[in-house]
Design a protein around this nucleic acid. Structure first.
Lengths: 134, 134, 134, 134
DNA sequence: GTGGTCTAGACCACC
DNA sequence: GTGGTCTAGACCACG
């Protein structure tokens, strides 16, 4: 059973939170190839959000080749492919690392403090990909 | 000499690109306490954007307490001081750590790999005050 | 029901008048945690001003952590939390205390007279949550 | 000897700081009727600011009837008159008290804490109108 | 419907 | 010269 948790009022849009959590669930092995996703309207009901928002998330995942729709049956996880080269993957992560480090330095964090926060978050994500305890 | 580079048509707004580059310059010591920033309209001219966009970036940096305006003289880098509570500082950094870790996991990075990238960036920022190698 | 009143042509900018009235409404309990604010464009229409001016006011309140925007839904009053260090909070209040005392001295007020005015205003704000008598 | 101290980078313009400090000096009895003010260029030199700024301050004080210029001799303090009614004076002070109390409440200050800050500032102004120790 | 960003251009205050 | 404010109007993203 897949549990999605959204935070309203964040700067990251709801549809993207759904996208990210489903990708993380797949990456973490919680959703395997061929597994079914919650129905659009079912998930929308559960999260108390507009069903267009869920549809948008699924549509984006479909476009990215992560899931696929089977007419009348629902959405299912597709065989995942590695699309990015190592350099590209590093580039993408570093795009987030740079502003993080700037902000941390300006806020007075030391390197070990920052690393500790990263490790803590990493542990949290790996042990609880659906965010049940967050 | 401070050079700002922006890419229009990116998903990250221009004013935020400016904010982040200036924050990075200050965090990295390229802009020291008391140093003047490019004038609002001067920078706008240089980047071929509207001056309000630069003003918005500067205004945001001012609210965050990293620069200040001196009427009729310009903007200057401010002495760093502890503005936020520890909890708030952690909250702000974690707001950047969370999406970073999600992305890293999604891209298949291990925790040590990610930590290493963070440490590398941290070292780069701290050890290259003049920005000669960047 | 929240009513904002502005006076154009004053020396205090419109966006700041809005900021102060909303801060007062929240401090006085007229706007409680979770309560929605008037929409940016709606309020702009009502006050017959540009929507950017309202947006600027709301943006400032957001940076100060008293309200938050929920994309596509509107602005809402935020749970109060300790954002600033004690020193910063004192600094911010003193920035308002100093000109007040200068003005009061200039106008010939004694210290007890001024303190009494402050206490009266404090009592008014705290004891009139619905704003019925204001 | 009159000592003026200015804070650059504040939100209150320099010329207004000069105006306020001279008014306070007169209100506090440090400058009596007929006393000479520092010369425009002398004060500008001392404060390392543009002499137009000092001229603007003196011009405003002259317009308000607080000082007067005697051609070729300099500026002198004029007999001070009470211009405002009691109600008007209270209104003027309360215009500053209201936003102060809102801000203080939102920052979590209690009434005694705020009163204490006001008293402290009051004592400071009365004992040291020229700000020598600030 | 909501907010977010950006432009072009105006007018003002300060130094 | 500097920054600060405001307008009118456009285009986009989100729900």
């Amino acid at each position: 059973m897949l549990t999605i948790q959204i935070t309203t009022g964040s700067d990251v849009p709801i549809f993207r939170q759904i996208v990210e959590q489903i990708r993380a669930a797949i990456a973490g092995g919680k959703l395997r190839t061929g597994a079914p996703l919650p129905s659009v309207r079912g998930l929308a009901n559960e999260l108390v959000i507009n069903h267009n928002t869920v549809a948008k998330a699924y549509s984006q995942l479909t476009r990215d080749g992560v899931i696929e729709s089977q007419q009348g049956r629902g959405y299912f996880v597709v065989q995942r492919r590695e699309i990015f080269t190592k350099a590209e993957r590093v580039r993408r992560v570093n795009a987030l690392v740079a502003p993080l480090v700037s902000e941390a330095v300006l806020l007075g964090f030391s390197e070990p403090e920052l690393v500790s926060l990263v490790q803590k978050q990493f542990a949290k994500v790996m042990s609880d990909p659906q965010g049940k305890t967050s």
